[in-house]
Write a protein that binds this DNA or RNA. Structure first.
Length: 101
DNA sequence: ACTGTGACCATCG
DNA sequence: GCGATGGCCACAG
């Protein structure tokens, strides 16, 4: 018996520390056979009251998607101490996991 | 099976 | 840096 893709995603998500973020593509790359679009879809279906840090996931350009116009994602990120630029971009040195140069 | 849609991505101008 | 384009994949109608 193997756990479902979305459960694996939930596990990964729960491990992103406060004040850091990752991307759909990075998460997808950690789950064999999963495409970024599938990650996005799963996140879009999280229940409203969830404790999982869905807001710590942005697109490949490190920008918040700001779906359905609510700036909630940016708000949450700023609350955690992340600097969100005017264009919605996040600092690349706060990506999770660490990208070593 | 076919079509349209979407919290994406890489590439190009 | 931006918008358009094609590719991708799961899902609803």
């Amino acid at each position: 018996m193997e756990i479902s893709v979305q459960e694996q995603l939930w596990l990964l998500l729960s491990q992103i520390p406060e004040g850091r973020f990752t991307t759909y593509g990075r998460l997808a790359a950690m789950l064999p056979g999963v495409h970024a679009r599938q990650v996005a879809r799963i996140l879009s279906q999280l229940p409203e009251g969830t404790q999982l840090p869905w807001h710590r996931v942005v697109n490949s350009q490190f920008k918040v998607s700001d779906f359905h116009g609510s700036g909630e994602q940016s708000e949450r990120l700023r609350t955690e101490g992340l600097l969100v630029s005017a264009s919605g971009r996040l600092p690349k040195d706060k990506v999770w996991p660490d990208s070593v140069l």
